[in-house]
Design a protein around this nucleic acid. Structure first.
Lengths: 219, 219
DNA sequence: ACTCACTAACTGACTGGTCAGTCAGCCACT
DNA sequence: AGTGGCTGACTGACCAGTCAGTTAGTGAGT
């Protein structure tokens, strides 16, 4: 029974937190493609061997990191349980597309996370985490929409389908911001891509949200 | 003056085509993360040295490959120049989200391409290609919408903004199909993600396209 | 028609460097 | 004296890029 599915169990809480933070920083600094165990160790001020000692392989460490992230995200989202459907919808939409983070740096972490995501099909341990994550978010959208319909705030649309659209559009927007808008490129070419998240957000409000709220819709 | 910005110029056409095809196959077989010069060479039945001889570095080879792809895509899309705006819109929407390719294999190439895309911020040569590609597609959407508005087929919406939404949503949908729906995962969990592109497509038709076509919309 | 000079396409063997993972052992604390 | 947390030194595999060549073709001079 030593093959526990959650190896993080054995890692002391304090060390675990510290190493997860270090992984976060290392990912931001180097991206996933250039992430090495050594760099994570450096970021934590610990030895590379320690990482192997606690998590076994690199893949297992990263899987633990994804689980760590997911927990945080779910907790943040759950904190709006009580509000009205339309407020919760706006809140979730905002959460998914963070504003332009800082002055000139793009979203290094979001980028690294997507690098990881692209490895999910090759790495079972990653895939589990991402699948769970996407399911949770899409479900949450669908739940909110269903609640809104029941409360007669939203029109009677297909909740699953609408949730899929919202999720896909925001995901796509985030992807563009992350992969195109870079500090070094000239402002001209950057402009449209950097604005993409806002544009998409605005278009969603125009086409979807306002459509949901319009109370006189037939069929 | 041997430092030409387009090294492909110097590569014999026949060999170039052959090596690009080999690169395609190698990407499908191994993904970008596990792509090596040797594997491409093997796929082409040539030596690894030849790749360096013609393209210099790995990055330059991949950049040439992206340019190769982009040209093909643009040619395919341009072939609908004459049709009506609503037909061209449907055509482009379909082109961007390929149907479930084969029986059980997911879109290996689409996945590899997104791996590459996530490297764009780190690799100038990749970024140029992807930026160009995304600009072309978004512009095409916007052009079609503008044409439709002028021809009084579409409502008078913000063309740029609507194009951004379409592009982002489809991009997101493709991403999900590519990164989540895998052959090995159990059917249950797969179902929603595998269906995502169709769902998104349907939702776009419901919220955006039908909204565009509705001729009685105010403001 | 036959060398000779030159070149482009191409190759095999090699190098320098990187990195995940291992292992033997150290240090507290109990 | 034993155990858990931790480390430095090491290894084996892998890989991009290099280099000194080989081969085939082309064209010029005789």
């Amino acid at each position: 029974m030593s093959t526990d599915e959650t190896p993080d169990q054995s890692v002391p809480d304090e060390v675990h937190e510290e190493l997860m933070q270090a992984t976060y920083r290392a990912l931001c600094a180097h991206g996933y493609a250039d992430l090495t165990m050594q760099r994570i160790a450096d970021e934590a001020g610990k030895s590379k061997s320690l990482l192997h000692y606690h998590y076994g392989t690199k893949h297992e460490l990263l899987a633990a990191f994804l689980a760590f992230l997911l927990d945080r995200f779910e907790k943040r989202v759950e904190s709006t349980e009580g509000n009205a459907p339309d407020e919760r919808l706006e809140f979730l939409l905002d959460k998914m597309v963070p504003e332009e983070d800082e002055d000139e740096t793009y979203d290094r972490f979001g980028l690294a996370l997507n690098e990881l995501r692209m490895q999910a099909p090759y790495v079972e341990a990653y895939r589990e985490q991402f699948d769970r994550n996407e399911d949770v978010i899409r479900q949450r959208f669908a739940d909110i929409i269903r609640d809104g319909i029941e409360a007669d705030i939203f029109r009677d649309v297909d909740a699953e389908r609408t949730a899929s659209l919202l999720f896909a559009a925001l995901d796509g927007a985030r992807l563009q911001r992350v992969s195109v808008a870079t500090p070094s490129a000239d402002a001209e070419a950057n402009q449209s891509a950097r604005a993409a998240p806002r544009e998409v957000r605005a278009a969603l409000d125009e086409f979807v949200v306002s459509n949901l709220l319009r109370d006189g819709g037939d069929e």
